[in-house]
């Protein structure tokens, strides 16, 4: 009996040893010589393999970064500047810092503001819904509400708000990989500069209908009135196809456009103070009056 046990142990141990040696030899003979820096970079990267950098994954990023002449085409949105400093150090390249970005959903067509005019009865997928028709509201530009962006997000940063029917970005989790941007068939999601302490101002609408049609479709729509464009002293807002767009690289976060917008389509977020709508309105009105007087004076002097 004892001898059986002993023999069993001996044979199994021997077998294990032989296989280990075979495996080791095979691994040695098939070893691929790789630039050791690739592994170093890969270790420095977050390893999410999200593809947010535009490469197939972290390994592809590291592989191409080693071969590249500089790091202008390589930026890991997940790791941000922190990680990129490490990568630059490994490769000995100059550090290219980028302003951190965040995904912004530019539709505020809540269930309350945007009445449903038909009932969608297909698979719950924005892609399928968008291929079928313009959506279950009168707005053909707004959020379809099936959550393709939510399922595209690999970082759990997006969720559907059951009350508004719109996706919500959790800024602390969003790494600006851009997956949701690609997933949205209506092109509503944009990667925007996160802004100082997260403060940023943007137009929360993409409706290109003319004013009355936009208004009819959604109470929160941008009606393309152009007041924001006239108000902005930083030349940051453009009006095209009946829709305003704020260039985040030019915006100085003065919030004047936000206060002046008649439909509340412009949103400022993460500001420490509440918007002093009346104060700004008075300020802008005074400025406009002064400018008018100035112009009148000029006209007079020109004469």
């Amino acid at each position: 009996m004892n001898s059986i046990v002993i023999w069993t142990i001996v044979i199994l141990a021997g077998l294990g040893l032989v296989l280990a040696v075979v495996l080791f030899l095979i691994a040695e003979s098939f070893k691929v010589e790789e630039d050791p820096r690739i592994e170093q970079i890969e270790k420095a990267l977050p390893g999410a393999n999200c593809g947010g950098c535009g490469y197939a994954g972290c390994h592809a990023f590291a592989d191409t970064a080693v071969k590249a002449a500089d790091l202008s085409a390589h930026f890991c949105p997940v790791g941000g500047n922190e990680v990129m400093k490490k990568v630059s150090a490994i490769l000995g390249y100059a550090v290219v810092e980028k302003a951190p970005q965040v995904a912004v959903v530019r539709c505020n067509g809540t269930c309350a503001a945007r009445p449903k005019v038909n009932v969608y009865d297909g698979v719950q997928s924005c892609r399928v819904k968008a291929a079928l028709y313009s959506g279950d509201t009168l707005c053909s530009f707004g959020c379809l509400g099936c959550g393709d962006c939510v399922s595209a997000c690999e970082f759990g940063a997006l969720s559907m708000d059951s009350e508004t029917g719109l996706p919500v970005v959790d800024e602390s989790k969003c790494v600006a990989c851009g997956k949701c941007v690609k997933a949205c068939p209506k092109g509503l999601i944009e990667l925007r500069a996160k802004g100082p302490r997260g403060m940023r101002v943007y137009v929360d609408c993409r409706n290109q209908d003319k004013g009355p049609a936009a208004k009819k479709a959604c109470a929160n729509a941008c009606i393309g009135c152009g007041i924001c464009v006239k108000t902005c002293t930083h030349d940051a807002i453009v009006l095209e196809n009946n829709i305003a767009y704020i260039d985040y690289s030019k915006c100085k976060l003065c919030r004047e456009c936000e206060a002046m917008c008649p439909t509340g389509a412009i949103h400022g977020v993460n500001f420490p103070k509440e918007l002093d709508r009346e104060g700004i309105k008075a300020r802008v009105a005074a400025r406009n009056a002064a400018a008018k007087a100035e112009a009148a004076k000029k006209e007079v002097s020109n004469e």
């Binding site: 297909g122 698979v123 997928s125 892609r127 399928v128 291929a131």
Partner: peptide, 11 residues
């Protein structure tokens, strides 16, 4: 919803 998805798959 087979066709809904297969239509996308076809695309």
């Amino acid at each position: 919803p087979l066709l809904d998805n297969v239509r996308q798959a076809k695309g």
